[in-house]
Simulated assay, not measured.
Amino acid sequence: MIEVSNIEKSFDGTPVLKGISCVFETGKCNLLLGGSGTGKSVLLQCIVGLMKPDIGSITFDGTIYTNSKVDIRQEIRRKIGMLFQGSALFDSMTVAQNVEFPLQMLTPEMTPEERRDRVEFCLKRVGLENAGNKMPAEISGGMKKRVGIARAIAPQCTYLFCDEPNSGLDPATSIKIDQLIHEITHEYDITTVIVTHDMNSVIEIGEHIIFLHQGKKLWDGTKEEILNATVPELRDFIFSSSLVRAAKRIDDETEGGIAAFAEEGDAGAGI
C-alpha cells in the first residue's frame, strides 16, 4: 500500500498539485484519472522519487519515502517497476537484453544464468517467449508495451507504475495490455498505479480510481461507482466518451450493468 498525504508541488510559483491525499491499495489496479494538465504525471513522478514534493509525505507499506535517508529510498526504489508511456526500450539492445537491464543494475547478486532464467520467465509471462532475440524496431507497438511490462516486473517488483500504458495502441491491443497488467497485479499481489485518461481502461480494470482536476483530488471510488458519481467535473469528463454513455444506459437498464458491458466488450474483442 502507498499512502500520499497532503502533497503539494509548484513550478515557478504556479501550483500543480494542491494538497493531494490518497491511498493506493495493494493487489489492485489503482487508476489516476484526469484530463491533460491535471497533475497526474507530476504526482506519479513525486511518488516514484523523480521529483520532490514541496510539502507532504509519501509512505510505502509503512516506510516514509520522502525525506528518508538515501539507503531507505534506494531500498524502496529497488522494489519499483516502471512502464513508461513510450515503452522507452533501448534501440541498440535485443528484447531479452532490455528485460535483463534492470536485473544487472538492481540485482548484482544474481548470476548470469539466474538472470537469463528470469528474463525467459518474464518474457513467457507476457507472451513473448519467442521474441527475445528481436530488436525493438522489429516488433509492434503492443509487443513493445509487453516488453516494457516484462522489464518492469523482472526485478520482482512490489510496486508497478504505468504511465499511459495504452498510448498509441489500437482498441483491441489496449484491452490486452489492460488485462495483462490486471492479471500481473493480482497474480503477484502488486500495488499498481496507472496514469490514464482512457475511460476504456476505467471500465476494464478500474478497481480503485482517483480523479484529479486542476491539481486537486475531487473523487475516488470504483468502476462500479463512477457512473453514478455526482461531482460535476468528473461527470463532464466521463460522459464525454460515447462508450461510457452506452455503459451508463446499460447500467440503468440492467443489474450490474457496467460489469455486463465490460464482459460484452471482452467478448467482442475476442479476448
Rank of each mutant, 00 (worst) to 15 (best):
D220N: 15
L83P: 04
F121H: 12
S21P: 02
G215W: 02
S68I: 01
G268C: 12
F101W: 09
G270L: 01
S10C: 00
T63N: 11
R146A: 05
S68D: 06
G148D: 02
R151A: 10
I153R: 04
D252P: 08
L212Y: 01
V193H: 11
K69C: 15
F90D: 00
I226R: 03
L17S: 02
E113R: 03
G127H: 02
C162V: 00
R146H: 08
M135V: 05
I20W: 08
V95L: 06
G62L: 10
A262N: 08
I72F: 13
R73H: 14
Q156H: 13
L218G: 07
I209D: 09
R73N: 11
D117K: 14
M51R: 14
R78K: 09
F121T: 11
G206S: 03
N67W: 03
A246L: 09
I175S: 11
K79M: 07
L243E: 06
D71H: 14
T107Q: 15
R73W: 08
P155H: 14
N228S: 15
E100M: 13
M51G: 13
S10Q: 02
P15G: 07
V119R: 03
V4G: 10
E129I: 04
E207K: 00
G142P: 07
L43F: 06
N6L: 10
R118M: 10
T14S: 12
E3I: 04
R235V: 11
I184Y: 14
L106S: 09
K40D: 06
S201I: 12
P165N: 13
K176M: 13
V42G: 08
D91A: 04
V42A: 02
R77K: 09
D163S: 10
R115N: 12
D117M: 15
